[in-house]
Write a protein that binds this DNA or RNA. Structure first.
Length: 215
DNA sequence: GACCAGGCACATC
DNA sequence: GATGTGCATGGT
């Protein structure tokens, strides 16, 4: 499986090239995006973040002070805006209570501890926690999402009903803990899912993974 | 107009 | 432990 996962990575990278997911932004902004993008297209999230920026609200302090109802108004485009405004508030409470409002103060905290802390925040589940860990804090944590699940199961790399932790283990057991690679690999799997695994069968013949050896 | 999108909490069986 | 439901906008 080690060889296979590395082979797939090289294949996808050669086919699609670098995907540039969540490059240079502040860790705080990445965390906000991670919550806003729950079950939502990134395009709609960008609008919401742009709106927050336009109103000078992209700071922990400003977001903490604004009432939940008003916050919802600014993030409408991201959908579920009432739910998400509440989740952002929960995250900010945690951020201030635990790290004085600055994720930078989490730098020396072990990844496992940090993950448990994030998961204890209401509204932050495994994918959101792991997105924050990987994309905002550069920790070697592989992010699993609906696309990853679809690709792995469509290509029979995992059994159909494997849960989040099992899927994640597949990668962490078989890849060196390198955040840049985890970042790129995940993005490439999403690209593959969008271009092929969602499409009709004819396109699947041209799928870069179609030539994958049977173990 | 139908379907989908970088989930999660909560209820129910 | 599995399965169902509410949450909601905007693109295709």
């Amino acid at each position: 499986m080690k060889r296979k996962l590395r082979f797939i990575y090289r294949l996808l990278y050669a086919s699609f090239g670098p995907q540039h997911w969540w490059p240079a932004r502040t860790p705080f902004e990445v965390a906000i995006g991670a919550i806003l993008t729950q079950n939502t297209s990134w395009l709609n999230v960008e609008k919401a973040i742009g709106n927050l920026r336009k109103h000078g609200l992209l700071s922990a302090d400003r977001l903490r002070r604004i009432p939940r109802g008003r916050l919802g108004g600014y993030i409408r485009s991201a959908g579920y805006y009432n739910v998400k405004a509440g989740r952002l508030k929960e995250f900010l409470d945690f951020l201030y209570k635990t790290y004085r409002g600055d994720l930078g103060n989490a730098a020396s905290v072990p990844t496992r501890t940090l993950r448990e802390q994030l998961l204890s925040v209401k509204g932050i589940g495994p994918e959101t926690a792991d997105s924050i860990l990987l994309y905002a804090l550069n920790r070697p944590v592989f992010v699993i999402d609906a696309y990853t699940r679809r690709v792995l199961s469509r290509h029979r790399l995992v059994r159909e009903h494997a849960d989040y932790d099992q899927l994640q283990k597949l990668f962490s057991d078989n890849l060196a803990p390198e955040p840049a690679v985890y970042n790129e690999y995940h993005a490439l799997l999403v690209k593959l899912a969008k271009d092929f695994c969602l499409k009709s069968k004819p396109r699947c013949r041209q799928c870069p993974l179609a030539s994958l050896p049977k173990d």
